[in-house]
Write a protein that binds this DNA or RNA. Structure first.
Length: 282
DNA sequence: AAGAATGTTACATG
DNA sequence: ACATGTAACATTCT
């Protein structure tokens, strides 16, 4: 569920909440699979007493650096979220990890679908090492995107969703960026013109920045929808031009938005604005 | 009530 | 090696 803007919003909120400098006085794991690659006992023992040195983001991962060269890396996958509560509050049945802090608060990991993962490791590069460039990094120029894209024959949408190629994009922002750049999701990457690549580069950065500015995208009201700590909801929903707008009008040309399937993912396009380039026609 | 859901990965097949 | 498709993970929402 959360993509780059949502994860960054959460990381910013965790920092604002004053977690840096706090230490973990105890940990509980209620769903062992939420912790990757180690027993719950080992996880709790290793994290206990550790002070939080910083909280950052890489791709869709939250990276918490701890003492002793250790990092806690969290991926929220589809429905993971954090709640900051008083240490004696009673967790409901979707709380899978609780970290009690030394100041009377506790951080709860809430994850209805249980796909989210905690990694406690001294070697963060084993998890983060294969990720592509950060699209909002100022070094990420149009030429970088061209490098990534022009030698691949994959369909552009699944390529952009591949975190080894470019980091942080998910289904919402890819659909939005492709709409903005007027590129069809099935167009094979190596057939994009230089203009299209420049346009796509601008569109990716625009939709991500806009998502960030609006504190993320929250769809609907269910508990599977994004919210930052304190149940804070994003406001980016009304900025979406095509995503989950099947049957509504394209705000640019007034044609009807249609939904299709691309690489197993629901995909929304304007069939008038987004057409496969002639280079790819048989 | 079947199908889809904002994510990733392992495996199979071409 | 690369592209693509399927299933799996587990639960809720439509």
């Amino acid at each position: 569920m959360p993509e780059l803007p949502e994860v960054q919003t959460l990381v910013d909120d965790l920092n604002k909440a004053g977690l840096v400098g706090r230490s973990v006085s105890r940990a509980h794991v209620h769903w062992p699979k939420s912790v990757h690659g180690m027993s719950t006992q080992r996880f709790c023992r290793q994290i206990k007493g550790q002070t939080i040195l910083s909280i950052g983001r890489r791709a869709k991962y939250i990276v918490v650096s701890l003492q002793d060269e250790m990092s806690l890396i969290v991926h929220l996958r589809m429905t993971g979220r954090f709640l900051l509560v008083r240490e004696n509050d009673k967790p409901d049945n979707h709380i899978h990890v609780t970290l009690t802090l030394d100041d009377g608060r506790a951080l709860w990991f809430h994850d209805t679908r249980k796909f989210g993962r905690f990694y406690l490791t001294g070697k963060p590069e084993t998890i983060l090492g294969t990720l592509g460039p950060e699209p909002l990094d100022r070094r990420f120029k149009s030429e970088c995107l061209e490098h990534i894209i022009s030698c691949r024959t994959r369909q552009i949408k699944p390529l952009l969703l591949d975190q080894r190629v470019i980091a942080g994009l998910g289904n919402i922002y890819v659909d939005e960026a492709l709409w903005m750049a007027r590129i069809h999701p099935l167009q094979s990457a190596d057939t994009l013109s230089a203009d299209q690549i420049r346009s796509l580069h601008r569109a990716i950065r625009h939709v991500l920045r806009q998502g960030l500015k609006n504190a993320g995208t929250t769809l609907g009201k269910g508990q599977g929808n994004f919210s930052s700590i304190g149940e804070r909801r994003g406001r980016n929903h009304n900025q979406l031009k095509v995503f989950r707008r099947t049957g509504q009008k394209c705000p640019r040309c007034l044609a009807t938005v249609v939904k299709m399937n691309v690489g197993q993912r629901g995909t929304h396009i304007c069939p008038t604005c987004q057409v496969v380039g002639t280079a790819n026609l048989r």
